[in-house]
């Protein structure tokens, strides 16, 4: 061992020869399978894109004209917004209908999902029940919300009833997964302790499980509320569920009023931003608490 004596200085400069050797080593980066696949995919996509542009049937549309016209439309939409077919107060009322639809379906969904989530959580339920519920909600979740609304429209007719049922249905499946996974995260020690003291299932659920996961429950529920707001706008247009979405549908498909579409878009944007700010605020509060 060379514990004594001066420490050998780190070689400060490498000769020209050494540099060349290092460059040589650097250039010998192993060619892995994934790099080949990625490069090949990019190449194929590039070729396909070029082929597509060449082979499009443009009819009489000139690229430059089309671009300018689109720009013009966007300009009308966003720089000259106005409301013609209804007033500002009416718009506000319609937005509140859309918010109400989102709120109702989220609350319905949350209440039912809380119960099912408890039964689906592996640590507080039985294994077969947990598997059955998790499997069922996975199936329900795989079908998009809009499709569920249309499916329920067969029985209830296109309108708000079908929208409420369909959106609630999908919210349940989404929240059951979120809740049950939050429940499964919690420390099983406290559950064991209360079981050992003679407490029953309901008492353990309300004294251990829910207090331990309340921050997750709230933040997942709010997340779903934001999703449901976006879906509620779409449902107004697609399923005749009313609200601001229906006005947008009328403005675009019926009156061809670009300015009104712009105004409505601004409305929805402002609401979405407000929700986002509110959500971050709540989450920060919860973080302080938890």
């Amino acid at each position: 061992m060379q514990a004594e004596g001066p420490i050998k200085p780190f070689p400060s400069h490498t000769g020209q020869d050494l540099d060349k050797r290092l460059l040589d080593l650097l250039s010998k980066k192993p060619f892995s399978k994934s790099t080949i696949v990625i490069r090949l995919s990019v190449l194929i996509l590039a070729i396909l894109t070029m082929y597509a542009f060449v082979s499009f049937d443009y009819k009489d549309v000139k690229l430059l004209d089309a671009l300018l016209l689109t720009m013009d439309n966007l300009k009308i939409m966003f720089f000259e917004p106005h409301l013609k077919h209804f007033t500002f107060t009416q718009a506000l009322y319609q937005v509140s209908i859309t918010l109400g639809l989102a709120f109702l379906t989220t609350i319905f969904g949350a209440i039912i999902a809380l119960m099912l989530g408890l039964l689906a959580a592996g640590n507080i339920s039985t294994k077969p029940l947990s598997i059955v519920i998790k499997g069922t909600v996975a199936l329900i979740r795989a079908v998009p919300t809009v499709l569920w609304v249309l499916i329920f429209a067969v029985a209830a007719g296109l309108g708000s009833v079908a929208a409420v049922i369909g959106m609630t249905f999908h919210s349940i499946s989404y929240l059951v997964k979120a809740y049950s996974e939050s429940f499964e995260e919690i420390d099983k020690g406290a559950i064991e302790a209360l079981q050992a003291s003679g407490a029953n299932w309901w008492q353990i659920v309300f004294q251990v499980v829910i207090p331990s996961s309340i921050t997750y429950i709230i933040s997942w529920t709010f997340m779903r509320f934001e999703i449901n707001f976006a879906v509620a706008v779409a449902m107004g247009a697609a399923a005749g569920a009313g609200g601001i979405g229906f006005d947008m549908f009328m403005a675009s498909g019926f009156y061809f009023d670009l300015s009104e579409i712009g105004a409505i878009t601004y409305f929805i944007l402002i609401i979405a931003i407000c929700l986002e700010i509110f959500a971050t605020h709540i989450k920060r509060k919860l973080k302080v608490l938890s």
Partner: peptide, 19 residues
């Protein structure tokens, strides 16, 4: 459950509800 009430249990990791 009635018998368990008469038996207290104490654990290595305390097993409290943190919140």
């Amino acid at each position: 459950k009635k018998v368990r009430r008469k038996i207290g249990m104490i654990f290595q990791h305390y097993n409290l509800v943190n919140r």
